[in-house]
């Protein structure tokens, strides 16, 4: 091992970051979360519509979540279980917004020089921890049950997901997500999905788990634990939780597009790619029943982990 000089990262370090002027960067820091919010809320509406059509129902209009959000936010009575109950939600939302800023979205990457892929996966911890704190502070047994399920599920999908990320980082010899995206530029064949197919496959298999859609909507299972962590949220609290959930979906899918589908050079293409990934997830979600938590854990640690592990071994043997 080369002890004194540290790795190949210095070569890639600052490429492409300086191309944006400070003013543009500030503007994007403000605009990007808003766009992300709109897109992800529309995704939620689309999800309900698609599910309904598959199940031969008419379904609500696509903009239904927006109506819901406005209604929830302006509701007259709100109920709080203490300071942590409020603060947890705010922490969760702040964490989500910052994570969005660190993920390159179609050539827009206002903050990606402040944190690499390692920072992103750690920042992705803040929203669930904030939600868990808020839910825990509510004192509702169902909320605690939901949190417990959420954390077990996270342990389940993080094992293959970390292997996948290490595969990507080992293959590209960088920890910067921006560099990973830039290295996939050019033809379709240089996309991550063709360079490390096993990693892409493993991620695709755990995508529904990460998004928390069926068959893995174990956390908030309404019929079992009355919506889990969200059970005590009403009014503006539920509005915040919904927004946080929407941003989470945005983050996961954007990450998938950046890692495996070559990112994009403009926002339009980027959102189109996200839409495709999301729809596939929604199709799966619409036709499956719910798993039990131990089944989900076993699922995550079986095929996805096996694929991810063999992907990593392959990359280590063949080299980047």
């Amino acid at each position: 091992m080369d002890r004194l000089v540290c790795g190949g990262a210095d070569l890639h370090g600052a490429v492409g970051v300086e191309t944006m002027t400070t003013l543009m960067r500030v503007v994007w820091i403000i605009v990007l979360p808003i766009i992300a919010l709109l897109i992800s809320v529309l995704f939620l509406g689309l999800f309900r519509k698609v599910t309904a059509r598959i199940q031969r129902r008419y379904g609500p209009p696509i903009y239904q979540p927006v109506i819901d959000l406005v209604k929830l936010f302006t509701q007259h009575s709100n109920i709080s279980h203490g300071l942590m109950f409020d603060a947890g939600l705010i922490i969760a939302l702040a964490g989500s917004v910052v994570t969005v800023l660190l993920i390159p979205a179609g050539g827009i990457h206002p903050l990606s020089s402040s944190g690499d892929l390692l920072v992103i996966i750690y920042l992705m911890l803040i929203p669930p921890i904030g939600m868990a704190l808020s839910a825990g502070a509510s004192g509702n047994p169902n909320a605690s049950l939901g949190v417990s399920r959420k954390l077990i599920l996270a342990l389940g999908y993080e094992v293959p997901f970390l292997l996948v990320l290490l595969t990507v980082m080992t293959y590209t010899e960088t920890t910067s997500l921006l560099n990973v995206v830039q290295m996939q530029a050019g033809s379709i064949l240089s996309w991550g999905v063709f360079r490390f197919p096993l990693a892409a496959l493993a991620t695709f298999l755990i995508l529904p788990v990460m998004l928390g859609v069926r068959p893995f909507d174990i956390i908030g299972a309404p019929q079992e634990i009355s919506s889990g962590p969200q059970v005590e949220f009403g009014g503006k609290y539920l509005a915040f939780a919904t927004v946080e959930h929407a941003l989470h979906i945005f983050i996961v899918i954007a990450l998938f597009v950046d890692l495996f589908l070559g990112g994009a050079t403009n926002l339009g293409t980027f959102f189109l790619k996200m839409l495709v990934v999301f729809l596939i997830g929604a199709f799966i979600g619409a036709v499956y029943p719910r798993f039990r938590i131990d089944q989900a854990l076993r699922y995550c640690w079986k095929w996805p982990t096996l694929f991810a592990l063999s992907g990593l071994i392959l990359v280590v043997i063949i080299g980047g």
Partner: peptide, 21 residues
């Protein structure tokens, strides 16, 4: 987020047993 949160109606504190099951 806090600013937006404070824009909405103030919430009422309830006891730990006042919850939905």
């Amino acid at each position: 987020a806090y600013a937006v949160f404070s824009l909405a109606r103030r919430s009422k504190r309830v006891s730990q047993y006042d919850n939905y099951a």
